[in-house]
């Protein structure tokens, strides 16, 4: 199937200073493809160019070079907006409107019938976990987290095929984050494509099928999350937990296997080794020392490690 988002050589220079002479390159020749039906994570440190990319896709700012297509249409085509949803970073809405009025207004801009607007608004406000008593409060009285929820609700008014979320978890408490995470996972279930930027890596790790990592306006890594996280060397690491035994009683393990590390744990010990051929030795040694094996787990590179590696010079 065709890509939902197709970005080719996208660049953006911001002009600085009174005479607009000084230029800041925020995006530099970005290429990106997002296939349908997945949750795509767009990562990068502060100022990497995530918001800039998203604003170009939404037609809010114009690229200095390159092209981009959404659902097969050039981004200059406003009509394709009827099939997409967007929640900006730190969304802000009309102070003087109530949440239901805002949803109704946006429903009008999509040409929905009044009865449909009412139903959709109430469904969505409930779905993003906004309490019913807050629906008819003016938005000026909303907290950051509540506005974030409204922002996500309004991005779904038109039942879009593609939802673009810029830092959807920011400002939310742990419960809110979990609710929104479930909502986003639900969107994939419903066959939608989600393109989300985030710096909260645990959310990305829990949700995304594919990710792209951006650094200073260029792509530094892209692909399936699992593949990126799989250890790059053939020797995968494993962690073995045991109880009923102290770390001091297992010194035979690092002696037998080079690179093995034994750590004392409250209930026993944990051993890290590289290479699955060493697991058997570890298990035998634990038994010899009179301990019980509790678990054997492969150790994945965490997204955080990958992120730090790709976005810093070290």
């Amino acid at each position: 199937m065709k890509n939902v988002i197709e970005i080719r050589g996208l660049s953006k220079d911001y002009e600085k200073g009174f005479w607009k002479k000084k230029k800041i390159r925020a995006l530099d020749g970005l290429d990106l493809d997002v296939a349908p039906g997945q949750i795509y994570g767009f990562l990068g440190g502060n100022g990497a160019g995530k918001t800039t990319t998203i604003k170009i896709l939404m037609g809010l700012i114009f690229p200095s070079g390159g092209t981009a297509k959404i659902l097969g249409k050039d981004i200059s085509d406003v009509e394709v907006h009827s099939r997409i949803g967007y929640c900006p970073e730190n969304p802000y809405f009309y102070d003087y409107l109530k949440a239901t009025e805002l949803m109704d207004y946006f429903g009008q801009l999509f040409g929905l019938e009044a009865s449909k607007r009412k139903k959709v608004s109430e469904d969505l406000l409930a779905r993003v976990g906004l309490e019913e008593k807050d629906w008819t409060k003016q938005l000026r009285k909303f907290s950051k987290g509540m506005l974030q929820r409204v922002g996500i609700a309004q991005s779904l008014v038109n039942d879009p095929e593609l939802v673009v979320l810029d830092e959807p978890m920011s400002g939310l408490d742990p419960v809110g984050r979990r609710e929104i995470r479930e909502l986003i996972a639900g969107l994939r279930q419903a066959g939608k494509t989600v393109f989300m930027s985030s710096h909260i890596l645990s959310d990305i790790e829990a949700l995304c099928d594919n990710v792209a990592i951006l650094r200073s306006g260029t792509l530094v890594a892209t692909g399936r999350l699992e593949e990126l996280l799989a250890s790059e060397d053939g020797d995968r690491a494993f962690e073995i937990s045991a109880n009923g035994v102290k770390a001091a009683e297992l010194i035979s393990i690092p002696e037998a296997i080079s690179g093995a590390v034994v750590t004392e744990k409250p209930s026993g010990a944990s051993i890290q080794v590289f290479g699955d051929e060493n697991i058997g030795t570890v298990l035998t040694e634990i038994k010899k020392a009179g301990g019980n094996v509790v678990s054997v787990q492969p150790v994945r590179q965490s997204l955080e490690e990958l992120f730090v590696k790709e976005t810093t010079d070290s």
């Binding site: 809010l60 406003v78 907006h81 802000y92 809405f93």
Partner: peptide, 14 residues
């Protein structure tokens, strides 16, 4: 300034 236009122009509004 308040960026309320972000959500307006992401809809089919010229």
């Amino acid at each position: 300034e308040k960026k309320t236009l972000y959500t307006i122009f992401s809809k089919p509004v010229g």
